[in-house]
């Protein structure tokens, strides 16, 4: 029961309270770039969540059983980024060969993920927070879902911006950023919710 509680708290916290995009500014590039349409937002969200889970499943054991044992903790960044790059490549090749339909819908987002700081961020944060394997996987799932939630919510906001009449100098990116600011503000409402749920 306690384990379940801890895991649920980790999941909800990473989705709502410590949202990677809106609170920690990780993965801003795809957030601003690929959130124009709802289907794009969902596609990118699914791809990021999948890669986050996969990357955590590989990097966590490598950190615990290889790097820590050999005293090579300082190789963490290099090893992790290479693993993520290789995984993304591998997934793309796999999808292209075996599930072409999925590759068509998700494939375009995959190459963007290698340099998505949210993925590298979540793998490093899991080690920093000294999570166990189960907790790490749940936290990755939460971060991925949080990313997707932010993208989906924001795609709705953006479609409104496109239809509005905004001052000349605010057109494009400035208006998008100001709108993102308000979405981020809305997420502050979740502060304390998780704490009170599990108190």
């Amino acid at each position: 029961m306690d384990t379940f509680k801890t895991l649920a708290a980790i999941l909800l916290t990473s989705v709502l309270v410590n949202n990677y995009v809106l609170r920690q500014f990780l993965g801003i590039c795809p957030f601003l770039g690929v959130s124009k349409k709802l289907n794009q937002a969902v596609g990118m969200g699914v791809a990021v969540t999948f890669v986050m889970l996969l990357a955590t499943a590989v990097t966590w054991p490598i950190q615990m059983f290889v790097l820590n044992n050999l005293g090579l903790e300082y190789m963490q960044t290099i090893v992790f980024i290479l693993i993520i790059a290789a995984l993304v490549q591998f997934v793309e090749i796999f999808l292209k060969k075996f599930i072409p339909s999925l590759h068509k819908s998700l494939g375009v987002y995959l190459p963007l993920i290698t340099t998505n700081c949210a993925v590298l961020g979540v793998t490093i944060n899991n080690i920093k927070d000294s999570y166990g394997f189960g907790e790490s996987m749940i936290s990755s799932l939460g971060c991925g879902l949080g990313f997707m939630l932010a993208m989906v919510l924001f795609s709705g906001v953006r479609s409104r911006i496109d239809e509005s009449d905004i001052p000349e100098h605010f057109k494009g990116l400035p208006a998008t950023l100001v709108a993102a600011s308000f979405v981020s503000l809305a997420f502050y409402g979740f502060e304390g919710v998780v704490d009170n749920l599990f108190a």
């Binding site: 809106l22 609170r23 920690q24 500014f25 100098h169 605010f170 990116l173 400035p174 208006a175 998008t176 950023l177 100001v178 993102a180 600011s181 308000f182 981020s184 503000l185 502050y188």
Partner: peptide, 13 residues
Amino acid sequence: APGGLMVYGLLIA
């Protein structure tokens, strides 16, 4: 966090 996004947008404008 929201202030960061806001200031960034305003400065680009």
